[in-house]
Design a protein around this nucleic acid. Structure first.
Lengths: 203, 203
DNA sequence: GTCTATACTCTGATAGAC
DNA sequence: GTCTATCAGAGTATAGAC
């Protein structure tokens, strides 16, 4: 039982993500994807039709793999603002740390195929901005934090978590340091980002 | 005087940036670049040799177009930390606001061609991290700000300025809002990001 | 479902006239 | 320096056997 039957499609999908991520959708070759998956060239088209359709499937699956989780945390009524910030930061940093190429790939797809983004958001739904807004407003009214818009808070949080991974090859060079220095930097980001935001919100 | 002599090379370079930015290097076609520049197909190769060399020239020119400015501000000995933060935020936000496609393009190139990044950083030089570190350390010792590493401060600043532009097509959809809402959001970012960081640094 | 062989298009690159 | 014409190769996609 070298290849469990029925796994071919999944094999291709996983291989496609790796290849797309490192070469970009346009730069990737369907032959390379087939080779990486260990299957015949023709099977890529048998299962996914065209390269563009395969690319869409990969992109959609990837986004759906982490956006709903973030939205879920933000929407959770029982969690405090601080807990949410720490939880999202922790998840995002860990996720992009373990998939170093993903952020760059997603950002390039996002701006090359905006139509796909639109369709995807229609399916995935939007972040619970109003929940955060209510929570922020209450905390502001209670004098617990400085005023800030829910949108800015969310964008600041995501920016600081995702950007360092997306720009890693450049930042690594710019900041210098030895082998592994940037790894440590990224790992410490989770708590640093959360602490930084909490500090910024103090009244 | 429809076409000033000697401008052909520059025309191609400008057109190439636009085409590369919207299609990615791999997705762009040399014919399309020639058309966009209004010149003959063969001239692209006459002036730049291969597509890869053209791509490198475009990438290098773009990075060199704004990194040195940022480094210059950060290195300036006469400026306070707060002034530097406000100045960099202002410049970065304005720059990426007026070149909406650039951030996404650069990030995708960065992770598709890390070797080019290395060569470029060797030429451009590195940000004056030590200057910021000294400035931070002094301010911390004087009790003016909370402790933070120079690297984190710089990365936080750049992240919050650049990421929203890089992820614009996605954020625009996720945050909803009418036509133009996101434009306003981006324009206000400059002062918001600076204020946010200054607030986070309060002791 | 999987394979081989192949068709056909797109596109980077050049040769050579002007 | 600029143009036309064209080639050579790469790469997506499919037809059809097994």
């Amino acid at each position: 039982m070298v290849k469990p039957a029925g796994d071919t499609k999944a094999l291709i999908l996983e291989a496609a993500l790796r290849v797309f991520a490192r070469s970009g959708t346009a730069g990737a070759r369907t032959r390379e994807i087939a080779a990486e998956a260990g299957v015949n060239n023709a099977l890529v088209h048998y299962y996914f039709g065209t390269k563009a359709q395969l690319a869409e499937a990969v992109f959609a699956q990837t986004i759906e793999g982490f956006l709903p989780g973030v939205f879920g945390v933000l929407a959770e009524p029982a969690l405090s603002l601080e807990t949410k910030i720490r939880e999202v930061a922790s998840r995002q940093v860990a996720f992009h740390y373990s998939h170093p190429w993903l952020a760059g790939y997603l950002l390039s797809e996002i701006h090359t195929h905006p139509q796909v983004v639109r369709a995807l958001v229609a399916k995935t739904g939007r972040p619970p901005v109003h929940v955060i807004r209510d929570q922020v407003d209450q905390a502001v009214a209670a004098g617990e934090i400085r005023p800030i818009s829910a949108e800015s808070l969310i964008v600041n949080l995501i920016s600081m978590c995702v950007f360092p991974s997306a720009a890693r090859p450049l930042l690594e060079q710019l900041l210098g340091g030895n082998e592994g220095t940037f790894d440590v930097f990224l790992k410490e980001r989770s708590t640093h980002v959360a602490d930084f935001i909490i500090a910024a919100l103090r009244p």
